[in-house]
């Protein structure tokens, strides 16, 4: 079966982090993270703000580089990739952001098409000449997320929930193996939060794309993910099934009961 949006590669895509650290100046944002994510998993990444969750996802996408350690995907050392190979890796590990990070002055379809920039042919795309196939894929993705009717609207005319769905469509047309969602629902109201989480779960289950999702809310993690990973002060403090997140564990993750209340 060849769904136009399904992942193209079939090789092993287990994501392995080996002792990954990242410092900003003297501050260590991530400290010796070792983590393995199997192909097709949906993993929640928990932790207080500032615990290093965003840094982790940015590192995996290689928007920033690790100061120590290595990131592997299957047989590839992701942390060593350069040039075209690096850009291809970014295409394979699509990101979704808390603030949506759409280009506000471009219309929806163009925003989604930016997800096709890493696909050949690349040069004509500099002057806006995407192929018809690119457009088919983009409209497919928009339809899948119920956003096709907004295709020609400017991105900043949409509500937060709508913008996040456009961002997911952009991630989908990249034809990724992994989706890295950085607090995808933190700026959304409860109804839209659920819609976005549903969409991510649907993508995970029906397209077999691995999803790593930074979450602020423990209940959402319990509802949508089987596995949770937790960070505190840059260190990995929990890795296991969501069912294992009892009060004692949460107290370690969130430090105090006040913060715990905030997380619920």
């Amino acid at each position: 079966m060849s769904h136009p949006l399904s992942s193209m590669n079939t090789a092993d895509a287990t994501l392995n982090l080996r002792g990954v650290s990242r410092s900003f100046g003297n501050a260590k944002a991530l400290d010796g993270i070792t983590l393995s994510v199997r192909d097709g998993e949906m993993v929640a990444v928990l932790g207080r703000s500032g615990a290093g969750k965003s840094t982790l996802l940015n590192l995996i996408n290689r928007l920033i580089d690790p100061t120590e350690g290595e990131i592997w995907c299957g047989e590839r050392n992701v942390s060593q990739l350069r040039g075209r190979a690096l850009l291809d890796w970014r295409r394979e590990s699509a990101m979704i952001f808390q603030r949506f990070n759409l280009v506000s002055r471009l219309n929806v379809i163009t925003n989604v098409l930016t997800g096709r920039l890493a696909h050949a042919p690349r040069l004509p795309k500099l002057i806006g000449r995407f192929t018809d196939h690119d457009r088919d894929v983009a409209i497919d993705a928009l339809e899948a997320l119920g956003m096709a009717e907004f295709a020609l609207r400017r991105a900043d005319e949409l509500s937060g929930g709508q913008q996040q769905r456009v961002a997911i469509a952009r991630a989908l047309v990249q034809q990724p193996r992994i989706i890295l969602a950085d607090e995808p629902v933190a700026s959304l109201d409860p109804v839209n939060s659920r819609a976005v989480m549903e969409a991510l779960r649907h993508i995970n289950q029906h397209r077999g794309i691995t999803v790593l999702c930074n979450l602020h809310s423990v209940p959402l993690a319990r509802e949508y993910c089987e596995r949770a990973v937790a960070l505190a002060k840059g260190k990995l403090v929990y890795d296991g099934p969501v069912s294992g997140l009892d009060d004692a564990t949460l107290a370690v993750i969130y430090g105090s009961t006040d913060a715990l209340a905030e997380a619920h």
């Binding site: 970014r90 990070n101 930016t114």
Partner: peptide, 23 residues
């Protein structure tokens, strides 16, 4: 943020400037 959004898709530097910064 907008530039980062485009860069994260694997767009090269020129593409990132055209689609992320120019608008």
């Amino acid at each position: 943020d907008e530039v980062k959004g485009v860069r994260s898709t694997g767009a090269n530097w020129w593409q990132t400037m055209v689609y992320g910064a120019t608008p």
